[in-house]
Design a protein around this nucleic acid. Structure first.
Lengths: 222, 222
DNA sequence: CTGGTCAATGACCACCCGGTCAACGCCTCC
DNA sequence: GGAGGCGTTGACCGGGTGGTCATTGACCAG
């Protein structure tokens, strides 16, 4: 039996045939992605999943439990991506590492669009049944990583030692998150999206590297 | 008769005695600031305002109308602040203008904390009864101004001409907005807040001016 | 004092919500 | 065949929502 995407259900959920579990998972992710936690309706959900309301509440005790399971899944994906980038880019220059992180973000958003919708909404608007603690914790994942990157780069002389790593990481995170959320929400054709993505990566990279000041006597790599 | 803070009500609202109007305004802003649009309850609101439900719906046809009036007020404040900064700083260097904008933001948040809460929530999470069009329009206000600033600075040779003004403005806006929202939401003592504010302004200024690269052969002003 | 006006009222409406549980098949084992 | 266990069902519950409207009563002109 494959492990379910949504963790945290009851015993009944874990022993449910995979086919039914996927129908429920699909319907639930859809419902929450479209309407957000508050406006999502369990009645609509069960109709879409093709099961009865009683069954759904047999698999998940409350609406909040079900949602938490989905958010955990989304969060797990993000965590894995961030860790992957951290390990794969150890020792590389700061700007390369940031670019890789941004592109991992684009990949997450492309591969799991509905989970991304849920993830961003929870993070930005707190539309969720759990408290600030939990949200804080989720948001710190990428900020911590960014602070590490900056501190690393400072010890190697690649970054201005006068930068406050925490605050700078926070600012970079704000840009990355909103960039990904907006790119995700935008409705562009695939070719447009690809061009758009490249343009954003370039703008982000330039701003983060040099700021707004003219390049001046900067050494060019080619 | 002083003009009401909340526009868009019925004739009855406009001709209402100022005292009662203020009680309703206060209660409404409170309710929406605390709970957001969706979760705000008209029943709770009328109790807090000390009027009957029938009266409230005599002043505003729907919940959405009332909310729109409040959002318009918040938006009006922001617009005025942005225009003020634009006019007062014409001709000044880019980093000064950005700093002024950020400080105008801090002022707005301090002077109108509940309106700020509503404003940020609407902008970030779309928790409102109106469509994307309207939200888009609201968000563009500061972005347009920022793009102007950058383009101006480029023609004066103060900013890297290779920067894409639109995208760069978008990234700056993301930082400013989230910074203000987080500072607003944070619970610090007044002295801590003041120190915090200064530290954020410094970090923002540094990042925007030079990026993350070491200052190198940069000319210092003192 | 009377009759008319009109803002204010709150009981009431239809609707939807998350969650419950007695009843119902279906299968297994004796 | 029958008994028992169990996953499934959907009618039902209490509660809250935004919005309505017949009734009220303070006020004023004649």
């Amino acid at each position: 039996m494959p492990e379910p995407l949504i963790t945290g259900g009851t015993d009944a959920w874990r022993t449910l045939p995979a086919e039914k579990r996927e129908a429920v998972t699909h319907a639930a992710v859809d419902e929450f992605a479209v309407h957000g936690y508050d406006r999502a309706s369990m009645n609509t959900l069960v109709k879409a999943a093709g099961i009865s309301k009683g069954s759904l509440f047999h698999y998940f005790r409350t609406k909040g439990d079900l949602f938490e399971g989905i958010v955990d899944a989304a969060f797990g994906h993000v965590k894995a991506q961030v860790k992957g980038v951290r390990d794969d880019t150890a020792g590389l220059p700061l700007d390369v590492r940031l670019e890789r992180l941004l592109e991992a973000g684009f990949r997450f958003v492309s591969d799991h669009p509905r989970l991304a919708t849920i993830y961003f909404r929870v993070l930005r608007s707190g539309d969720a049944p759990f408290g600030r603690r939990r949200l804080e914790e989720m948001g710190q994942l990428s900020r911590r990583f960014l602070a590490e990157l900056i501190a690393d780069a400072q010890t190697r002389g690649e970054a201005d030692p006068a930068l406050d790593p925490e605050r700078t990481a926070w600012l970079l995170d704000a840009m990355l998150e909103r960039l990904l959320a907006a790119w995700h929400a935008g409705d562009l054709s695939p070719e447009q999206r690809e061009a758009d993505r490249r343009a954003w990566v370039a703008s982000f990279r330039r701003l983060v590297a040099h700021g707004t000041r003219p390049a001046g006597q900067e050494v060019s790599h080619g």
